[in-house]
């Protein structure tokens, strides 16, 4: 059973990678001829021919696609057309920065959104909770980069408390995490609060209260677990969004991550690097989604296969 489940997942991964690769192949084909970018001004036909031959651009489309597929199977995405460095290495080199930002902002999202969601969901009709819910609705509409600009203006320019470039110092982690956390937390907060509010109406909660259980126990041990499946599904999606590279935030904070490399490679039509980035991101998103699935099964017995 475990083996067949694993095989199923691997098959899904293969389909995902094939799909991503095919889409990218078509999209990049439409973007133009990289040989023209490489050849510089007024290239001679001979030079263009030489460059096309060097990068395999002179082959028929189907052959190019098959060659590319074969290389992908060997994790060979070729070299960057600008730097000559292996494309996969360039993508992997940026990964720590992206993962650091993802973990930090997700961590911040969890520690703020879950307690806030529980607090609002406990008594959603109370004026303070309604105000809180309204605030989260407003916050949800503010894009991360807008919050980033405001935070930089306040904490970097006006007060001079924090740096805004890179991630060498831990102090530089604060503002990007808050910017992204501020964007992600309201949605999670609303999902948690809705789940908790719904659970609070259930008979088992009423029974627990009748039996004298403390409100803290009821909220955290009884109501919150009922809200978790929806929350975990959302967290999975949000984490997948973060690992796929947050271009604007990485640009604003000069945070060396996949988003910056993606932007740079797209602007320069650096096809091998773009393909390597998409491959790495697809793998990460797949891994995160599967992790979220596994977590969901762990916390919700109804999702487990019947034989278990």
């Amino acid at each position: 059973m475990i083996l067949s489940g694993l095989a199923q997942r691997l098959a899904r991964l293969a389909i995902l990678l094939l799909g991503v690769n095919a889409l990218l192949f078509v999209a990049l084909g439409l973007a133009g001829d990289p040989a023209l970018m490489l050849a510089g001004e007024d290239p001679t036909p001979e030079l263009l021919e030489r460059i096309r031959a060097e990068y395999g651009l002179d082959l028929p489309v189907w052959q190019r696609y098959l060659v590319q597929l074969g290389r992908m199977a060997q994790l060979d995405f070729g070299v960057s057309i600008y730097t000559g460095q292996p494309a996969l290495f360039m993508a992997l080199e940026q990964l720590p920065g992206t993962l650091l930002m993802a973990v930090l902002s997700m961590g911040l999202t969890l520690v703020t959104a879950i307690p806030a969601g529980v607090w609002i969901g406990h008594r959603p009709e109370a004026a303070s909770r309604r105000f809180g819910a309204a605030l989260t609705a407003v916050a949800q509409g503010i894009p991360g980069f807008v919050m980033a600009l405001v935070l930089i203006q306040l904490f970097v320019v006006r007060l001079g408390w924090l740096p805004s470039l890179g991630y060498a110092q831990p102090a530089a982690w604060i503002l990007p995490s808050i910017s992204l956390g501020f964007f992600l937390a309201p949605k999670l907060c609303r999902v948690v609060s809705a789940g908790v509010a719904e659970a609070m109406q259930e008979d088992y909660i009423r029974t627990a209260r009748a039996n004298g259980a403390s409100m803290r126990f009821i909220l955290w041990r009884e109501a919150l677990p009922a809200a978790l499946p929806a929350a975990v599904a959302l967290i999975g999606t949000q984490f997948a969004f973060l690992v796929s590279g947050v271009v604007l935030i990485e640009t604003l904070f000069l945070w060396p991550g996949i988003g910056l490399l993606l932007l740079h490679s797209a602007q320069n039509l650096d096809f091998p690097v773009l393909q390597a980035i998409c491959f790495v991101v697809a793998l990460l998103v797949f891994a995160v989604n599967n992790l979220a699935d596994a977590l969901l099964r762990l916390i919700d017995p109804r999702l487990r296969p019947a034989t278990q």
Binding site: L149, Q153, V156, V157, G160, P163, T251, L252
Partner: peptide, 18 residues
Amino acid sequence: MYPLRDHASRLQAALSGQ
């Protein structure tokens, strides 16, 4: 040397003494 393509980032980093 910092590659800051975004104008606002350059301005804010400059004003903050970075």
